[in-house]
Design a protein around this nucleic acid. Sequence first.
DNA 1: CGGCGCCTTGAGGTACGTCAACGAAAGTGG
DNA 2: CCACTTTCGTTGACGTACCTCAAGGCGCCG
Lengths: 234, 234
Amino acid sequence: MNATDAHCALCPTRGVCVARDLDAGALERLHACLTTSAPLHRGDHLYRSGDPAEYCFLVRSGAFKTSRLTSGGDEYITGFHYPGELIGLDGQNDGAFPESATALDNSTVCRIRLLDLPVLWELGAGPGLLRLLGETMSRHAETHINLCQSRAPARIAGYLTQLMSRFARLGFDPTQLPMPMSRTDLANHLGLTLECLSRVLGKWKRAGVIEPTRDHVLIRKPTELRTTAYHLAA
Amino acid sequence: MNATDAHCALCPTRGVCVARDLDAGALERLHACLTTSAPLHRGDHLYRSGDPAEYCFLVRSGAFKTSRLTSGGDEYITGFHYPGELIGLDGQNDGAFPESATALDNSTVCRIRLLDLPVLWELGAGPGLLRLLGETMSRHAETHINLCQSRAPARIAGYLTQLMSRFARLGFDPTQLPMPMSRTDLANHLGLTLECLSRVLGKWKRAGVIEPTRDHVLIRKPTELRTTAYHLAA
DNA sequence: CGGCGCCTTGAGGTACGTCAACGAAAGTGG
DNA sequence: CCACTTTCGTTGACGTACCTCAAGGCGCCG
C-alpha cells in the first residue's frame, strides 16, 4: 500500500468520488483515513470470504467481481464493480466479509477504514459518502428488477444499459464497454446459462446492435438495447 | 409524529436496532435525531418516488414494500421490509427517493435525519449503524443469488428461508411467517407469475411442507425448504 | 504443432409463461 | 342478512424460451 499520495488529482473517478467536493487542505488530511492500494492483477483477491472487515473499498481503476461459494463448490457472482463504486460494506454485518472480491483486471482501490468515517464527515465528505451509498442501494434495486425479467434478452439488454449509464457517469464513452469478466461469469451473474448468453450476443452481433469481442462490447444501436430492456417510469 | 418517546424499551426490534447498545443517557439524546412515526395503515405511503429524501427509516413494526413504476404503469417490487430493517437510503443518490415505500399492514417506523448521522455516531450508535448497513447489503446479495435460481421452487424456498432467518434474528418464531403482501406482489418480487407461485405453494401444501393462508405461512418442514433453496458454503 | 480453456453452435426436453375459466373471499348496498 | 360486485387466488391446457447435453471452432500457451 502506498499511503503517501492518493493521486486524487489524477484519479479517473474524481468526478464521482466522496472526495469530489473537498478542498486541498481536506484532501491532504483525507490520506489519513483513505489510502490507495498497490495495483492488483487479474485474479488477485482484494478480500476473501471470512476475512475480518476493517475496511471498505472504493474501486479506483480496473474492475472487480464479488462472489460467494455454494456448499457444492461453485460460485454465485453477486456483482461486477467498476471505478467509483463502493464494495465491502457487507462485511460490517458480522465483522467478516461474506463474499470474496476478485480483480478482473489490473486494478487499484482506495481503502476506507470504517472507524474513520466520523473523520471523513468532519472533512466534508459526508454528503459524498451518502450519495455513494444511495447509488449503491439504487443499483441493487435496478439489478433486482433486471433479474425479474424472465426473458434473457431483456436481462442482458438491461445489464448493458445499466453499464452504459455507469460509464457515462464516469465521463467515459458509454458505447465502448470493457467486459473484463468471462462470459461464464456474466451469465452466472445474470442467472442465465453460458449458451443462452452466447446466443443472444451472437444474434445482436448479426443484427448490428453490438460488436462483442473477448473483453469489450461496442454498442452500435443503444436504442435497440433500451427498448429490449425493462423500462422504469420517468 | 410523536417525538416525545421513542419507546425503545418496548420496541420489538430492540435487540437488533442501532440503539441496541446505548445507555439510558444516550437513548435520551437519541430522540433528537430519531423519532417514531404515527401508525401507518395498509396502503399508506411512507414516501413516494420523487419525494425529497431528507430521512431514512427503520421499520419498527408491521411491514413495507418498496417499488418502482414502469413507463407502462405496472410496478416492480424491489423489496419487502420487516421490523429492524433499514429503508430509504437509496434516496441519497440524487436527493429524491427513486422508489415508493408502502405499508402492507399497520406499521410504525423510526425516522433518521441523515444530517444527524454524526450525532448518532457520537452517541455510540456508529457500530450499530454499520452493522445494519452490512445486513442490508448482505441481504441484497442473497436476494440476487436467489433470483439467479432459474427454478421457481428454488426461488420460493430461498425467499421463505431468508424470511425465516430474518424473523429468527428478531426473536420471533421463524416457523410462523406473516405474509402481509398479496400473492401478486410476492410473485412480482420473485420474478415469477402469480400462477407459478400459486402452483408451487399448492404442491407444498399438499405435501405437508407448509401451511399457507392468506396472510401467514406456517413452516412445517423447514429442512425440505432449505434443501430446495440455494446453498451457500459455511 | 498439440494441448487446453473459452466460446460458439446444434438438437431435444421441460419448466415456466400465457391465456382462459373457475372459485373464494372481501367489500357494498339494499 | 343476503344478492351483487370486485378483487384475488386457484386450476387447467398449451406454446415457447431457456436449460441440458453434446459436439465443434478459436484463441492462447507451452
